[in-house]
């Protein structure tokens, strides 16, 4: 079973998506493709026990990594 997520690079840092892919790489097959402003992530061979949440959890992780990087560049703390 495969799921596809499209991230806009204005809202999601490209490195953050890579970091999320690395973090989830042991659970699922992940393919990251970049096309213009879009970062397309395909999650394949999702284990059944994680089928309901894995895509959403991956999106959360990518957003978390993005926010941390954004705040770090802005010279602020996370909160």
């Amino acid at each position: 079973m495969a799921e596809k997520v499209i991230f806009d690079d204005y809202l999601y840092d490209s490195e953050a998506v890579d970091a999320a892919a690395e973090a989830y790489g042991h659970l699922v097959d992940i393919d990251v493709q970049r096309d213009g402003e879009q970062i397309t992530v395909t999650l394949d061979n999702i284990p059944e026990e994680h089928a309901g949440v894995l895509k959403d959890a991956f999106c959360n992780h990518a957003l978390y990594e993005t926010i941390v990087r954004f705040r770090s560049e802005a010279g602020e703390g996370v909160l």
């Binding site: 806009d8 204005y10 809202l11 957003l63 926010i67 802005a74």
Partner: peptide, 22 residues
């Protein structure tokens, strides 16, 4: 602003899944 959306999303990440689009 994007900064405010990030700040809010960060606080909600623990409670729910957040996905942003354009």
């Amino acid at each position: 602003k994007k900064d405010a959306v990030y700040g809010t999303a960060y606080l909600f990440i623990d409670r729910c899944f957040v996905y942003l689009s354009r």
